[in-house]
Design a protein around this nucleic acid. Sequence first.
RNA 1: GCCGGUGUGGUGAAAUGGCAGACACAACGGACUUAAAAUCCGUUGGCGCGAAAGCGCCGUGCGGGUUCGAGUCCCGCCACCGGUACCA
Length: 874
Amino acid sequence: MSTERRKPYPFDQIEPKWQSFWDVHQSFHAPNPGEPGFDPQQPKYYVLDMFPYPSGAGLHVGHPEGYTATDIIARYKRMRGFNVLHPMGWDAFGLPAEQYAIKTGQHPAITTAENIGRFKGQLQRLGFAYDWQREVNTTDPAYYRWTQWIFLQIYHSWFNPDTQRAEPISTYRGDNPDSVRLAFVAEVPVNWCPDLGTVLANEEVVDGKSEVGGFPVVRRPMRQWMLRITAFADRLINELDGLDWPDSIKALQRNWIGRSEGAEVDFTLAQGSSQIRVFTTRPDTLFGATYLVLAPENPLVDSLTTDSQRAAVAAYREAASRKSDLERTELAKEKSGVFTGSFAVNPVNNEQVPVWIADYVLSGYGTGAIMAVPAHDERDWEFARKFALPIRAVVSETPRIGLGGDSACSAEPATCMAGEGYAIHSGPLDGLSTAEAKAEICQRLEAAGAGRRTITFKLRDWLFSRQRYWGEPFPVIWENGSHRAIGEDELPLNPPPLEDFKPTGTGEPPLAKAVDWVRYSERATRETNTMPQWAGSCWYYLRYTDARCDSRFIGREAEQYWMTGRIHPERSSASGDSAPRPHGGVDLYVGGTEHAVLHLLYARFWHKVLFDLGHVSTPEPFQRLVNQGLILGEDGQKMSKSRGNVVNPDDVVVEYGADAFRCYEMFMGPLEQMKPWSMTGVEGVSRFLARVWRLFMEENQAGQWVPSPAVQDVPLDKAQLKTLHATIKKVGEDIESLSFNTAISQMMIFVNAFIPANPRPLSALKALLQVLNPFAPHLTEELWEQIHAGAPAQPLASAPWPQWDAQFLVEDDLEIPVQVNGKLRDKIVVPRETSSADIEQAALSTPKVLEHTTGKTIRKVIVVPGKLVNIVAN
RNA sequence: GCCGGUGUGGUGAAAUGGCAGACACAACGGACUUAAAAUCCGUUGGCGCGAAAGCGCCGUGCGGGUUCGAGUCCCGCCACCGGUACCA
């Protein structure tokens, strides 16, 4: 024996053995309908992990937490007789590979391939039951060909407001289809860094400076591709209802979409006839509007500004444009603004109110202009106080009678009251509640043509282009200033080979350097922007259903089967089956909260477009979503290199084995909870697995592991039967509810009960291997082979889940706690069939109970059958 | 500020409104060993009484409430974590 620490059981030999067995036999390949080995009798189950980015740093312990959970589910469902789809792949476009390429000149494809290799090796070393035949890679032309194809479907569609659906652009009856396409071009502000000569993502801008180098960043309008996700805002909110997602994630999405009901009100300028349209959620406070504020970027500002204010306005706009969004919000606590010199007329009382510009009004929300009601809005209040603008209370917390008609300026209130109440100083609205006043004023405005009810959303259209190399090129060409899609037969459109990946310095994307590639024809050039990383992850879960299909983005039959469970390709079988059909196709989707909004919203959006166009069968992609909690370092802090508390899964696997790693991650606590890593905790779980091993095996004189003679084909005693059946029951139920920690506890109880037994009944131990298999697949598979003398009829992974029988769970005698006034005083043991009356008699007559009841009057006796007795006495 | 989540032993945690702390870690004691490791057995929420078996009291962030009975349900706070924030 070497000096190397002795392994508690030989995981270092059995784990690679079974990993290669699964690989050679393709044990976890799931055939599609029509393929050999497909069983149409079995129900389907699609269990999915969030798409990983194969970073150079490799796996960290956070990744396998969710992966282990889904792996347990996948293996369990297989044993329960489901056709299980459990795939894995790579979201491989992205910035790190491109930046590495800029530094070293190595092509991103090479870096990407290396990283994928490392990542995949690490996953395989953990024994995950993925169907690797379905592996996808977003940077593979066979994949991004279809990403580009989906973009074309979006490009060739519009949102029909009458049907509330995406439809082919051919159904559009207007004369400018480009103005309604779901993919369109717009001039929008981007983060432009002149010193770096590039556009930066929001995350790359810190405090208005570039993260790299600390150079100033300005907002600059550039031509960008946008996707019209806002058209789907209502559906993206409403259709959350049928999904089994955490409430917190639904709330996050609703909040992000930010639907708010209000009204637009038109103010006519005092000079001239042009109008300023404002958006407000409190039209009931219109009588309290004492000034207007426009966003500095509002296009009306130029025409509004009087000569005397022109210099001040220009300076303010210039300063505002230099600030990043972050600066304008987080850093600018003090309100700022400039008077334009113009006045507008309040349509309800013909008062003239000054028009200001201020950066607390955002150009991208509502109409980019507000009516300020300082008495009832905190921001307007602050602004009015700073610039000494009038403040007029028009809402009272309590109903006040007799103030009607007085809309003249009253004394300024002492505080801002932002809540609801009753209208005052508001002419015809006086006395009405906020809700009534809103309805009334909207009616009057609509009648007068000065306003209307509207709904606005915080959600913006999706900025879909990036000035990057390592992404999907757009299948679009430009000719005479207008864009046109290339044909589907021209896909995939590969990025050009480049030697130099550096930014151009002009704001033009790197692809512009590939002059030959850009030149499409005599007159037409290619679009040089690329798609964002989100594109590939918007539909990867669909590609998995038919990952090798090359005639279509996925086969109809495969998509329908894995997303709905239906096999035959009839689209809508009106066979009157009343069972509520889930909205989404993926049965279980597990991943971190960091994707709560963007990825999950973008994917839902694409899915709905594809659904409307008839390419997929469900309106939603993911029926059930679960977020795994963050794993912290041993110090309870977030893991990070700088803190030096990072745990590398490879090290854990070398020391304790993949099974111990998997089981520990599941034993730590509830899946969804944040929890700290503990190396001694790993040891504890490793000891448990070693005890399982020694249930079956013992060491001989030579120090070799041999089957234990204690394992014999003998019947179980009563207690053993109860433990066995309780374990089968609990482990199955706990897996279903994702309570893996308590499932493992139960198996520990089982092992603790059977370790001392001699002989140890083989049938019980077999069942243990079956229920433990999803958690510790290598160990259990090896022992399964051992007890079948090296020749099992089938691998454990394909064995059925064991049955439990309720008759073994009930005891003949019950121990019933007896409380007096809610305090535990005694326990009685009675036969199971004892009547409530007899239990009550027995409980009342025990010495300890008598001790606490003598001298008192028994007021009441509660007997909970089989559970407890509570005696109320005083 | 707003939204969401979490508060239970020294630690990770468990508990359909019904015996709080299962299971594990750590700690301590014992067996085995020349010794150690490994393994096996035992003790382990706090305080008090008792030589001991045992007994009593307190205890799930804080304060109220509902109930025969509350870690669990309701109301009001506090602390921590996460997200978000001039969205009119």
